[in-house]
Amino acid sequence: MVVKIRLARFGKRNWPHYNIVVAQARTARNSKPLEVLGTYDPVPKADPYGAPDKLHKDIEMDVSRAKYWIGVGAQPTDRMWKILSMAGILPPKKFEPPTAKGQPPVEVDKVRIR
């Protein structure tokens, strides 16, 4: 069974707060994980005495432990890949769908009609 690095939703209604966990892929989302690596607070907030429009999101994570789990083959989810790439553990990855390439223009002399 695959070991995953993923998020487990805690917090309240309309107030998400996540644990960053290492767990077996087939276990339930909030079941007891192999290890809790940290937390992720997705609600942006300003510093108490800083500029009110300068927002940040807080992440707590044991970076060395995350490196270890990546090293032994744990698979991060997309959201966790983004966070781990920001921590410098994984290379950045684009998650947008690939842009469709248009057909090249038709060259008349190469077209054969039977």
């Binding site: 300068k54 940040h56 994570m61 970076v63 966070i83 920001m86 921590a87």
Partner: peptide, 10 residues
Amino acid sequence: AAYRIKDVSV
């Protein structure tokens, strides 16, 4: 929003 990653210990 900026991401602030704090290194903690398990």
